[in-house]
Design a protein around this nucleic acid. Structure first.
Length: 220
DNA sequence: GCGACAG
DNA sequence: ATCTTGTCGC
C-alpha cells in the first residue's frame, strides 16, 4: 500500500511527492453519519505504540466500531514527520474497520505544517477519505486569541498563508487548532468540530480514540 | 547562528 | 507522548 521511508530525507521527499495530491477545494460532506477518530498512545518502556481508530454515529456520538493495532515504532519522533511514526499502525486499524467512515478526525495537523502536509493530509491522500486535523497545541504559524465564547475563532497564519484556525469549543477554555486535511474545506471542518465537541474541549471522536489507545497500551 | 518544534 | 496531587471554579 505505502512504502515507509527510513531516513529524514526520504520522509521529506515522500511528503513533497504526495502533497500535490491533496484536495483543498472540495468543501466536503455537509452531513455525516459515521465519523472516525484516530489517536496513538505510547508505552512507558521501549518504542512501542498503540494505534486506535473509533467510529462514532454522529446522531448519538456513541462508538459503533473500533480497531486497535500495537507495534514497535518504525520511525523516530521528528516534528513535521510524525506521520511516519503513527500512520503505519493507523492505516492497518482503518483497514480492519467494518464500517467505512465518511470523515476522519486526526489528532494533529493537516495543512498547518512546515511543508503543508501533516498527518491529516497524509491519511486523507492514502485512503481517499475526507480528513481534518485537530491539535491541542500550536505548531506552525501565528494566531490571535479568539473571543472567549464557544464557536469563536482566529486564523492561523504561516508565511502569509491561512493554514487553519484556533477554534474555541468551550467558553473561556484554550482553543483547539483545526486545519484541513483532504477533501474538506476549513469552514466545514470547523462546523464539524463544533458539532462533535458539545461538552468537552476535544471532539468526541478524538476523546474516544485517546481512551481506547491508552487502555490498549496498558493491556498490551 | 540560536531557539522552537503536532504526538 | 509520558512522569503526576491537590485544588480552584462552574
Amino acid at each position: 500500500m505505502a512504502e515507509w521511508p527510513r531516513s529524514v530525507a526520504e520522509a521529506e521527499a515522500v511528503q513533497e511527492r504526495l502533497r500535490p495530491l491533496v484536495d483543498l477545494d472540495d468543501p466536503g460532506p455537509e452531513t455525516v453519519r459515521h465519523v472516525a477518530g484516530l489517536d496513538v498512545a505510547y508505552a512507558t518502556e521501549g518504542d512501542e505504540l498503540t494505534a486506535a481508530v473509533v467510529v462514532l454515529d454522529t446522531g448519538t456520538l456513541e462508538v459503533v466500531d473500533q480497531a486497535v493495532v500495537h507495534e514497535r515504532a518504525r520511525f523516530p519522533y521528528v516534528p513535521g514527520l510524525f506521520a511516519f511514526r503513527e500512520l503505519p499502525p493507523l492505516l492497518i486499524a482503518l483497514e480492519r474497520l467494518r464500517i467505512t467512515p465518511e470523515l476522519l478526525v486526526c489528532d494533529g495537523y493537516g495543512l498547518a505544517h512546515p511543508r503543508r502536509f501533516g498527518l491529516a493530509c497524509h491519511v486523507g491522500v492514502l485512503t481517499g477519505l475526507p480528513a481534518i486535523g485537530v491539535a491541542k497545541t500550536a505548531f506552525v504559524g501565528a494566531y490571535g486569541d479568539p473571543p472567549p465564547e464557544r464557536g469563536s475563532w482566529a486564523p492561523i497564519v504561516d508565511r502569509g498563508d491561512v493554514v487553519g484556525r484556533a477554534l474555541r469549543t468551550r467558553d473561556g477554555v484554550k482553543p483547539v487548532f483545526v486545519s484541513q486535511g483532504h477533501r474538506v474545506g476549513l469552514d466545514n471542518a470547523c462546523r464539524h468540530v463544533l458539532r462533535l465537541a458539545p461538552a468537552y474541549r476535544l471532539p468526541e471522536p478524538i476523546r474516544q480514540a485517546d481512551r481506547l489507545s491508552r487502555s490498549g497500551a496498558r493491556t498490551a
